[in-house]
């Protein structure tokens, strides 16, 4: 436990080091999440719009 505490302190500069790595992980994960949500939302909206297109509906009506 003491070894872990010494390691986390990083020679008295732990706050600077862990804040750097934390910022990298938070920002990169956040950007990935935002990008993925944007792409997902657009994909869903496109699928709905594409399904409701008149020629698509006409084709579906013919098939049924």
């Amino acid at each position: 436990m003491e070894t872990l505490w010494v390691y986390l302190q990083m020679g008295g500069h732990g706050g600077f080091i862990w804040a750097s790595y934390g910022a990298v992980l938070v920002i990169l994960f956040g950007l990935w999440l935002i990008s993925r949500r944007f792409a997902g939302a657009v994909q869903t909206e496109l699928a709905v719009l594409d399904r409701d297109r008149p020629h698509r509906q006409a084709r579906q009506n013919r098939e049924t």
Partner: peptide, 17 residues
């Protein structure tokens, strides 16, 4: 690539609308 895919599909939505 994720972002470009989203942008391409957003363009398609705009065109469909």
């Amino acid at each position: 690539l994720i972002r470009i895919r989203g942008e391409i599909n957003a363009g398609k939505i705009r065109a469909l609308r």
